[in-house]
Amino acid sequence: MNEKRNNVVGERIKELRNGIGYTQIQLGEKVGVNRTSIANYETGKASPPLDIAIKLVSVFNCSADYLLGNTEDKFVVKESHTKYKVSKGSFVPDSAPIIEMVQIPIYGVIRAGYDSLAEQRIVGYEGVSKDTVKDGEYFYLIVKGDSMIDEGIHEGMRVLVKSQSHCEHGKIGVVIVNGDEGTLKRVYYEGDTVVLQAANRDIPPRILPIYDVRIQGQVKKVEFDV
């Protein structure tokens, strides 16, 4: 992220933090970083990593575009909790269950070398049940390439990803290695190495030192449009 962009995001973070009456320490505790990190974000010395930026949007209850300085409207895409009644028939009784919905971002590409939400390309938002994502921060990623086609995951599908820096053994993670864009691979740990296994017979597994692998999240659900 360039310096000007850092400054815009930093100013927005400070403005929004003051708006909810948080100190830098309180905000840091809320999103899982120390006070110095918050101070560096606000002064433009550093940009918040993807997982922290997503948490900031949630804490501030603002649109990601506002945090990034792309709009002056804080609630163009509000992280709203819209309530819907669900019923099998056309008549919806008062006793019908209520589903609370939240909006989460959709990314077209997760690019290597960019640690901040501000530098990633948000292509839209999707409403999901609050219960589906209540255990953490989530985002959608549009699948690129054919690395997982043998598991029925094709280009253009969307995967629901829990933002985290560790992927469970044997699960599908969003992984960045050696300047590549974020890609889907099954992740296996063997001592101090990581085995990245594609689901494509033409792509051999990669065995890498654990510190060479950057995980952006773990896939929780695969979707496709019909």
Rank of each mutant, 00 (worst) to 15 (best):
D94S: 14
L141F: 08
Y114K: 10
A198H: 01
G152H: 06
M157F: 13
K134E: 13
P209F: 12
V31I: 15
E29Q: 14
V57M: 00
Y189N: 01
F91D: 12
T82Y: 08
T71K: 05
L50Q: 01
K74Y: 10
G156S: 04
H166F: 13
G179N: 06
S63N: 04
E190A: 12
G127K: 08
K78W: 11
A199R: 04
G170D: 06
T36L: 13
A198F: 06
I110M: 08
G152W: 12
A39H: 09
N34T: 04
D202W: 13
S63F: 10
E190L: 13
G69P: 01
P205G: 11
A64T: 06
T82C: 08
Y114A: 01
T43D: 09
V213A: 02
T43P: 02
N2G: 15
Q216A: 03
G108I: 02
A46C: 08
K4D: 14
S95Y: 12
I176C: 01
V9Q: 11
Q120F: 08
V59Q: 04
S163I: 00
Y211F: 12
I210A: 15
S147K: 07
Q26H: 08
G21H: 08
Y140E: 03
Q164I: 03
N200C: 10
G179D: 04
H166N: 12
N7C: 11
M101H: 05
R186K: 15
I52M: 07
D225S: 13
E190I: 10
L184V: 00
K130Y: 13
E11I: 05
V123Y: 09
V8P: 09
L67K: 02
E168M: 10
I20E: 03
T23W: 13
K83I: 13
N18R: 14
P93M: 13
G191L: 03
K55I: 01
F139P: 03
D131I: 11
A96F: 07
K220S: 11
L27Q: 02
